[in-house]
Design a protein around this nucleic acid. Sequence first.
DNA 1: TACTATGTTTAGTAATTACTAAACATAGTA
DNA 2: TACTATGTTTAGTAATTACTAAACATAGTA
Lengths: 175, 175
Amino acid sequence: MTTDLQTIQQNFVESLSQISRFWGFPKGMGAIFGVLYLSPAPLSLDELVEQTGLTKGAISTEVRSLARIGLVHRSTKLGDRKDYYEAETDFYAAIRSILKERQNSEFDRAIRSVRDTLSILEAGAGSNGPEWQFALERVRALQEFFDAIDSLNNAVIKLEKLGFVNVQRILGVLK
Amino acid sequence: MTTDLQTIQQNFVESLSQISRFWGFPKGMGAIFGVLYLSPAPLSLDELVEQTGLTKGAISTEVRSLARIGLVHRSTKLGDRKDYYEAETDFYAAIRSILKERQNSEFDRAIRSVRDTLSILEAGAGSNGPEWQFALERVRALQEFFDAIDSLNNAVIKLEKLGFVNVQRILGVLK
DNA sequence: TACTATGTTTAGTAATTACTAAACATAGTA
DNA sequence: TACTATGTTTAGTAATTACTAAACATAGTA
């Protein structure tokens, strides 16, 4: 039976690493976030080195990524030249930040490209044959799906204001 | 100006490759799906080889993954020993299938591990100090977030029945 | 100014993943 | 039975990614 707090924390950090890896992020990123998330006080780079087993270099770059997507914040103490890092605890804020960040990503470039494809197909619909129509319909259906997912993203953002309980209620109504 | 259908299709397939890669899947997987999705008729393995530029081996394995998550279906024609593949066009069905498939994945193992952590922390809450309480609260907050996301997954599944327009309406009400 | 404590960048390595080429297996056909 | 058309598996390679070790940059301090 593992009732020792430190072991529990290590397990937790490992789980977050796995989750991170699953989503295509370095597992070190998950570990760093996990350690910070369980720490009552902000941690310095050296403390992170100690607690994650990664090197300064790795932490330096990964902590920057985490800060960019809003999952970690960097702060300083007066009279102390170290940087300190702490976890964002408002996940909805983080998600909003991630979605915003995503705007410039390769992902959105690809999504936009699909939309452009659709426009071109629509523009040429009148003067082209059934193969063209077929492509048009397929791409349009995919685009509609993307739009639906996108509106779900908005729902996630709104979740913050609604709170979990209300979401449950709404889902109940949908049934 | 690219108004030649074949070029448009190639662009589309390339976009899907990118999206696939973004989500941590091989880009070949996106390409295969893209080609099938734009094809009015099911395609054989050799036709996929021709249209994607991948080798038989790669297609053989990746098409299997796609079938496992329900994005592609395999079929046969009587008196023809080839296998034929076609794209699932009902994305909600595919998503449902993916979510179900996910149950056994590393991802869900990790998620479950977080839930277990929470249970252990809750069980020991009475007989432990403030550090323990702190960890308990943090892990509980994360778990609540996961639950909220999970209920969104359910929402995605329900989207199918509701249709896009209704979702828009509901989101309007939420505002 | 030289020294120290810090964080960052860089060059290279280890680990992982996607893929190819070719051997293999199998079901059908002559 | 030998042959053919198909799909699968396997061994190895190429490409990518995560990470380390160490050089570097910089701001502060003696």
